[in-house]
Amino acid sequence: MNTDLNIIAKTLRRKIIETSFRARIAHIGSCLSCIDLLVYLYWCELKINPSESENIHRDRFILSKGHGAPGLFQVLAAKGFFPLHLLEEFGKPGSVFHEHPPKPGYIAGIEAATGSLGHGLPMALGMALAERIQKLEYRTYAMLSDGECNEGSIWEAAMLASAQKLNKLTVIIDYNKWQATSRSQKVMAIEPLSDKWKSFGWDVQEIDGHDFSQIENSFNKAREESKPSTIIAHTIKGKGVSFMEDDNNWHYRIPNADELQRSIRELEDGL
């Protein structure tokens, strides 16, 4: 199974980079760092039938780090939430496919408009409470970035989720050690991140966010917990393309033709 997931992730990495080149969309580094996690979530973890993407019992997934949307759009298309050809509109004038997810109703599978950091987790918290109040049957997931954990709203949500014992809420942190202009540890002393979440009353696991068997184990364990769970996924920004890895210029940069070819060659290797 893991080799399949690896192949899917590589294919999507390539599409993310090609789209960035063609449509001039930034945040490649941010998309490559979380794409393995997104692939695992949508292929193995989330109970969502792409052809019934509004079923009230579906699991809810919110990309709280909204600037990773170019990665999420590829995942949703590959899973059949909408026809692949819609992505040809990516970045074009008048399209709904741009750098951030729009509000629900424009792209199947998108649960909330994000892009302003710090909104997604509190919204996920509300969705988890709505499940309990209405006696529905779903789990709620929110993917955060490490820089996003600067926002006070994240910690406000963390405290309330814990007080409410929302064990069907899972947070995944794409911990790539960078935010927009600096190392996340340098800006906000984010460490000890794991202890922070623990002290807020969450179950915490730390994994390699590019290793599918560790990802699998962590989600399986999170499902058994009696508290809300955080999976701190250690990742590499720009993962999968040697010259983008851990180089934060790829937060904003768009590849030129040569860089596009070089990244495609690297990603074809081993397919």
Binding site: L117, G118, G147, E148, N150, E151, G152, Q179, A180, T181, S182, V187, M188, H251, Y252
Partner: peptide, 28 residues
């Protein structure tokens, strides 16, 4: 700065590092 303006403020930071603070993504 709220974690934006990559490299734009390098000259400011060079001459007065103590008077530039990246306050992170925490605008309030």
């Amino acid at each position: 700065s709220g974690d934006i303006g990559n490299r734009m403020f390098d000259k400011f930071k060079d001459f007065a590092p103590e008077r530039f603070i990246n306050c992170g993504i925490a605008e309030a």
